[in-house]
Simulated scan of single mutants.
Amino acid sequence: MNPRIPFVAAPLLVLTYGVIRIFDGLDGSRGPGLAWTSGHLAFIAALAFFVPVFLQMRRLAGRNTLSTVSTSVGILGILAVGTQFAIDIAVGFMSADHAGMSVYFDQIKSVPGVPFLVYDGGPFLFYLAQLALVVQLAAAGRVKVWTPFLVLLDLLLPFLNKDFIPLGAVCLLVSFVPLAGQVARTARPAHALA
């Protein structure tokens, strides 16, 4: 796979999720249904692309201890967010309406450890690691100094209002495009790996 693809695909898929989420809520509630499922699948696909993004950022940062820890923490966060979205999809399939979804979510969140690992704590690892890696790259002069600010903006906008997810995704895309170019320029040719 072209090493640039994940840096473009991940933010575009987050953007897709954010737009679908807005349309899903136009009737006053979100889920269950096609919009709920397709939006969540788009975000899970984005998470899959974030794995090579994190690995490439680690490589650009020099594969040192800090970048390795940040990448490992980020992948744990990806697993937490992925679990959350997989649960959301399953609940959507099992529920006839939004009220039915709430019942299932209450049952799931009553399981000890699940709220922290899957909803309240674990997902933050994904976002913090993303910011940590970009800050490391900025400190090493591998990205422009404004790049961490765009990534931080992407992370903060949904806390203000989840309808800002698409705007945050655009910020992330703008910050990732130069990284994609850098990754492509510094990637070893396939024949050099033999």
Score class of each variant (00 low, 15 high):
residue 3 P to M: 12
residue 4 R to S: 12
residue 7 F to K: 06
residue 7 F to A: 10
residue 11 P to N: 13
residue 11 P to S: 11
residue 13 L to C: 03
residue 17 Y to D: 11
residue 20 I to G: 09
residue 24 D to F: 10
residue 30 R to F: 14
residue 31 G to M: 14
residue 33 G to Q: 13
residue 35 A to C: 04
residue 41 L to A: 15
residue 44 I to L: 15
residue 46 A to F: 04
residue 48 A to E: 07
residue 54 F to S: 07
residue 54 F to T: 01
residue 55 L to K: 00
residue 57 M to E: 10
residue 61 A to F: 02
residue 64 N to H: 09
residue 67 S to L: 06
residue 70 S to L: 05
residue 71 T to I: 00
residue 72 S to G: 14
residue 72 S to I: 05
residue 82 G to N: 11
residue 83 T to N: 07
residue 84 Q to I: 00
residue 88 D to M: 04
residue 91 V to E: 07
residue 91 V to Y: 00
residue 94 M to R: 08
residue 101 M to Q: 12
residue 102 S to W: 00
residue 104 Y to Q: 08
residue 105 F to P: 00
residue 106 D to Y: 01
residue 108 I to N: 02
residue 110 S to K: 08
residue 113 G to N: 11
residue 116 F to V: 11
residue 119 Y to D: 12
residue 121 G to L: 11
residue 125 L to I: 05
residue 125 L to K: 04
residue 135 V to H: 03
residue 143 V to Y: 08
residue 146 W to Y: 13
residue 146 W to P: 02
residue 148 P to H: 15
residue 150 L to E: 05
residue 151 V to N: 08
residue 152 L to M: 13
residue 154 D to Y: 12
residue 159 F to W: 13
residue 162 K to M: 10
residue 168 G to L: 10
residue 168 G to H: 05
residue 169 A to Q: 02
residue 170 V to D: 09
residue 175 S to L: 07
residue 176 F to C: 06
residue 179 L to M: 10
residue 179 L to N: 01
residue 181 G to Y: 07
residue 182 Q to K: 14
residue 184 A to E: 14
residue 185 R to W: 04
residue 190 A to W: 10
